[in-house]
């Protein structure tokens, strides 16, 4: 601090308290609404103090949205996206920074291009791609006239119909969300700052590239990996559009999608108390992650956007 300015400091505290209230008031109202009975929640105005139905409502929401199933799905999907993206990105970042091979710049630009288009803009074709992931292979087969070729070779008439439907499967929920290069670039930037002497020393000692990667590069990257993993976990848990399209089966719904079914619609009973309890439940895991791992979260947030 450069000088003392007690009045300004008080104003600053007031501003920050207002900011914190802006965040907390909606959450507090959600908590209050979640602790009332359905009759109480419809009374206007909403009471300022919570009622005594909080645990009961949590239980109702848990059962009604089938959270025991959808939480599991969310955890699998979020962890799958996190682990998948980090592994794939580490490997490809290692390849494009530590090897001099013919297609290096081509690979770099291919990966780089994927930064430009978020999944939302290519949602329909991506859906088609995942509904039948084998479609490109089918085109290839048609294009090369594999069926005719086979007929010519063996004399048998065959039709090639490849299908690989990933709707309502974990790979279908996870893989399309791994298809972006942000993490690759984070690791690439980091690898470029690793001292060259480490690689030279490892080579002198006769370490193979994979050995160098495993024993030196990976331990150095741990803090980056942890920070990124938090961001990716939040990203995976909070996904909406993709799971919405992709889970026609109720058993595959993620927590956020299952919560959607609790929102009162115009023609149904306005059970806002249950909806708010469900909302609090669905936001609990990511909130805990942020609160408990705050230092890493901040690092990940700032790093991953560079």
């Amino acid at each position: 601090m450069v000088e003392r300015a007690p009045i300004l400091d008080m104003i600053c505290h007031a501003i920050l308290i207002a900011g914190a209230m802006l965040v907390c008031v909606p959450l507090y109202f959600a908590f209050v609404a979640g602790s009332l009975t359905i009759a109480e929640v419809q009374k206007v105005p909403l009471p300022w103090l919570p009622g005594d139905q909080f645990l009961a409502n949590l239980q109702t929401a848990w059962v009604k949205a089938d959270f025991s199933r959808s939480f599991l799905n969310s955890i699998v999907v979020a962890l799958g996206i996190t682990a998948g993206k980090i592994v794939v990105s580490l490997l490809s970042a290692f390849a494009i920074t530590y090897f001099r091979f013919r297609y290096r710049m081509l690979a770099f630009w291919l990966i780089f291009m994927s930064l430009m288009l978020p999944i939302e803009v290519r949602i329909v074709p991506t859906f088609e791609a995942v509904a039948n992931a084998a479609l490109p292979l089918q085109w290839l087969a048609d294009l090369l006239h594999v069926a005719d070729l086979w007929k010519w070779v063996s004399g048998h008439d065959v039709t090639i119909a490849l299908e690989w439907n990933m709707v309502n499967t974990y790979p279908g929920l996870i893989l399309p969300l791994i298809a972006s290069a942000t993490a690759t670039f984070l690791f690439r930037q980091f690898f470029l700052t690793v001292p060259d002497e480490l690689c030279e020393a490892a080579r002198l000692d006769g370490a193979s590239p994979l050995r160098f990667f495993w024993s030196i590069l990976l331990p150095l990257s741990v803090s980056n990996i942890v920070a990124l993993a938090i961001i990716l976990f939040l990203f995976g848990w909070n996904q909406y559009l993709w799971p919405l399209l992709f889970t026609t089966d109720k058993d595959m719904a993620t927590a956020v999608i299952a919560l959607k079914n609790l929102i009162p619609r115009a023609d149904s009973e306005p059970a806002w108390n249950i909806a708010m309890s469900g909302a609090l439940l669905a936001m609990l895991p990511p909130t805990l992650v942020i609160l408990l791992l705050q230092r890493w979260f901040l690092k990940g947030l700032v790093d991953s956007s560079k």
Partner: peptide, 18 residues
């Protein structure tokens, strides 16, 4: 974007990694 100390040429391993 290439490390000065790198693992030289050879496309096999990097292709596999990518």
């Amino acid at each position: 974007g290439l490390k000065r100390a790198n693992f030289g040429r050879g496309a096999g391993l990097p292709t596999l990694l990518l």
